[in-house]
Design a protein around this nucleic acid. Structure first.
Length: 552
RNA sequence: CGGGGAGUGGCGCAGUCUGGUAGCGCACCCGGCUGGGGGCCGGGCGGUCGCAGGUUCAAAUCCUGUCUCCCCGACCA
């Protein structure tokens, strides 16, 4: 591609409202442009990156027996009503000209299950694995950070269909292995973590995370351990029990910090009350150590039902006072694992008073948020931000039951197919690569997903010997099968180098007066801006191919 | 949804408080010089100041309404 006619609008300054590194750089480098909140166009260079990621994903999906198809973005609402997924706040809904309700797909469980249910009859056809790359529409409450969180994006979603749980485990493992190969090939840093099964239902889930500063998730890491903080468990750091006894006047002190400071105690010597309301239990008091935070997801999973924080009004109805809550015989209570038996400073359930009570041994649940420094198998954990680039879920019969997707088993009986679903976001992989490898000059693509293999810079205006030699080099490299971008613009060399470093093509060859005198092009690796050996212009191909193999 | 902020040329911004000819840098076009790190000189193109209504002799500026976008949080199959 000749840069003089490439739609590559680079900018010296990032958009004023951009925060995330990948947002700033992808806009500056001319890869993406915003159309509306969470709605982005991919410009030619950006789209090349996106499609390189897609190609890698497709190859690995095919390698585990995936069959690519294509399902529509717009679905009749009826299908989603059957699975109880009609009416989500993130769901785009619309009516057709006849007034029939439709939805824009957030994902494709309903449709793929509909097809399999209609057309697969026998266990002999299983296992089956179907996938596509398709636009997903989600009316996110808060799109952010360029293409990291958008309202419309392309996802590779695949679905496995098996006769039983054992089969599902095989399909699940195949996906986990394929995902590892995809992300390794894409050249990004990643790890897989245990994750919450969330609203998808089902029994097991892993997320594939790419660590980066703009990440939206926090991941707890220790040797041999990696989990989303949403579900992570760890051994807490110990705190000695309080030596106080009896009632403690705490006028107007409603926070852990204020009470602890007033009494000369450590926050961990207090108990924090977190009142929640659940469907079956009503108001429940959940207690964690004062220096810990309740993790609502873990609490939900521990109580095995949906919950929400109690409102101040609900507390007042019971004569309770926010800020001075403590254990009471009137209400069911649950205690976090970190609360070892012994005395704790707790709210006295009346204003301006705390008291020390003995918390006996008893049932404990794990529902606190882990913190850096907690340990797993004796090793302290660290917590770092990461972006979720893929996930795998065991769905079981969550969708095959409501949609009636059954096959006949060896006994001739109908059985609901056992499903798994597996997502992977090419845009997030691209953005994660930007985040992970960018330097102060711009992007540095892993070569497997770079928009071009080689960037040839003509350090001379059009018509000069340098420009002609650069064009000849460009033709020759292309003829050898490399993907090459030629900067044939009339700009000065400084502007060209700056744009090249912003765009991040892994290998740069500069043809200028200086090298031309010796019949050479200068070579530079983008990663680290490392100077390589010059390339002989009369026989460049082997050298350049080797250099390309050597770059990251 | 709660809190905060912003809409003025392609990008980044000033002007708004105190109403009076719409400005600056970059980019872009033309001419010239320059040609290995965003170079220089000269001349240009380009804007219903988000939208609607109101006040006024006069509105980017004041008033009312509305839309959009961003950031933090909540949320996030």
């Amino acid at each position: 591609m000749r840069q003089s006619h490439l739609f590559l609008p680079t900018e010296r300054q990032p958009p004023a409202d951009a925060e995330a590194l990948s947002h700033k750089l992808m806009v500056r480098a001319g890869l993406i442009r915003q159309v509306g909140a969470g709605l982005w166009s991919w410009l030619p260079a950006g789209w090349r990156v996106h499609e390189k990621v897609v190609d890698i994903i497709r190859e690995e999906m095919d390698a585990i027996g995936g069959q690519e198809l294509l399902m529509p973005v717009m679905h009749p609402a009826e299908l989603w009503k059957k699975t109880g997924r009609y009416g989500f706040s993130e769901q785009f809904r619309l009516d057709d000209r006849k007034g029939a309700p439709h939805v824009l797909a957030m994902t494709h469980e309903e449709v793929v299950t509909f097809h399999v249910g209609n057309s697969v009859r026998s266990y002999r056809q299983l296992p089956m694995m179907l996938y596509h790359f398709q636009v997903k529409e989600r009316d996110e409450p808060r799109p952010r950070a360029g293409v990291l969180r958008t309202r419309e994006f392309i996802m590779k979603d695949s679905y496995s269909f098996d006769l039983d749980e054992e089969g599902l485990q095989v399909s699940y493992d195949k996906h986990a292995q394929a995902y590892a190969r995809m992300l390794d090939r894409a050249g990004i840093e990643w790890y897989s973590v245990e994750s919450d099964v969330g609203m998808m239902g089902g029994s097991s889930a892993h997320e594939f995370m790419a660590p980066c500063g703009a990440g939206e998730d926090d991941v707890a890491l220790a040797p041999g351990y990696a989990a989303n903080v949403e579900v992570a468990s760890a051994t807490p750091q110990p705190v000695p029990h309080t030596e106080l006894t009896g009632d403690q006047e705490t006028p107007g002190l409603t926070t852990i910090e204020a009470v602890a400071e007033h009494l000369g105690a450590r926050p961990g010597q207090l108990l924090k009350a977190f009142p929640v309301v659940t469907e079956s239990r009503g108001l429940v008091m959940a207690f964690v150590r004062g220096d810990h935070r309740v993790n609502e997801i873990k609490l939900r999973n521990a109580l095995k039902e949906e919950l929400r924080p109690a409102t101040p009004a609900e507390l007042e109805e019971r004569g309770l006072h926010a800020g001075f809550l403590g254990p009471t015989g009137d209400l069911p209570s649950v205690f976090d694992e970190a609360i070892v038996p012994g005395p704790y400073i707790v709210g006295a359930n009346r204003p301006d008073l705390h008291t020390v009570v003995e918390i006996p041994a008893g049932e404990r649940l794990d529902f606190r948020t882990v913190e850096a420094g907690d340990t797993v198998n004796g090793n302290p954990i660290t917590i770092e931000p990461a972006i979720e680039v893929g996930n795998i879920f065991k769905l079981g019969t969550r969708y095959s039951e409501p949609l009636g997707a059954t096959v006949l088993d060896t006994n001739g009986k109908d059985r609901h197919v056992v499903m798994g679903c597996y997502g992977m976001g090419p845009a997030r992989i691209a953005a994660a690569a930007v985040e992970q490898f960018a330097d102060e000059k711009g992007i540095s693509w892993p070569k497997s997903i770079a928009p071009w293999d080689v960037h040839v810079i003509a350090a001379g205006k059009p018509g000069t010997d340098e420009a002609n030699a650069a064009a000849a080099l460009y033709d020759e490299l292309r003829g050898a099968g490399l993907e090459v971008l030629l900067d044939d613009r009339a700009d000065g060399p400084g502007a060209k180098f700056a744009d090249a470093e912003l765009l991040g093509v892994p290998l740069r060859l500069t043809v200028g007066k200086r090298g031309l005198a010796e019949g050479k092009a200068e070579a530079m690796q983008r990663r680290g801006l490392t100077q390589l050996e010059g390339v002989a212009l009369d026989d460049p191909i082997e050298t350049v191919k080797q250099q390309w193999l050597d770059v990251p």
